[in-house]
Amino acid sequence: MLDNHQKNIATFIHLSTFSRFVIPMGNFIGPIILWIANKDKSEFVDQHGKQAINFQISILLYALIIGTLTVPFFVFKFLHGIDFIDFHGLHDFHINIGKPSPLLYIGGGLGVLAFIGFILELVFIIKASLKARDGEPFHYPFTINFIK
Rank of each mutant, 00 (worst) to 15 (best):
N96G: 04
F93S: 08
Y105N: 03
V123S: 08
H14Q: 08
N54I: 02
R20C: 08
F87T: 14
I144R: 03
T70G: 13
F118R: 08
V45E: 00
L120G: 02
F21H: 03
I106D: 05
A37Y: 09
I13E: 01
G26E: 04
T11H: 00
L130C: 06
P72L: 04
V75L: 12
E43L: 13
P141M: 01
H48S: 01
L2C: 01
F142W: 15
D83E: 12
F73G: 10
I9V: 15
N96H: 14
V22E: 02
F93Y: 14
F115D: 11
N145W: 09
Y105T: 12
I95M: 13
K127T: 15
F84C: 04
K39D: 00
Y140A: 04
I36Y: 12
V22Y: 09
V45N: 00
N27C: 01
I9S: 07
H80M: 15
R133G: 15
A37R: 13
L69H: 05
S16G: 09
V22T: 10
L34W: 02
A52E: 08
L60F: 15
P24N: 07
D86R: 05
H94G: 09
N4P: 04
A52H: 03
A10V: 03
I65D: 02
S129K: 06
P31Q: 07
T70F: 07
A10N: 05
H91D: 15
H5D: 11
G49S: 02
H14I: 03
F12M: 15
Q47T: 12
F12K: 06
K39A: 06
I95C: 05
N54S: 08
A128H: 02
K50E: 05
Y140Q: 05
Y140G: 03
I116T: 08
K148F: 05
F73V: 08
S16C: 09
L34T: 00
G26K: 03
H88S: 13
I85D: 12
I144W: 13
G89H: 02
F93E: 12
D92E: 14
Q51A: 11
K7V: 06
H139L: 13
I147S: 00
Q56G: 05
I97G: 06
F124Q: 10
I82F: 14
Q6A: 14
A114E: 11
G49N: 12
E43K: 13
K99W: 14
N145L: 05
F74G: 06
S42P: 04
T11D: 01
I29S: 08
F78P: 04
Q47I: 07
F115Q: 10
I97V: 15
A128M: 04
L130S: 10
K148I: 03
I65H: 08
W35H: 07
F21T: 02
G117H: 06
A63W: 04
S58V: 06
I97P: 01
D3F: 05
P141L: 01
I126H: 07
S101Q: 14
V75C: 02
S101G: 14
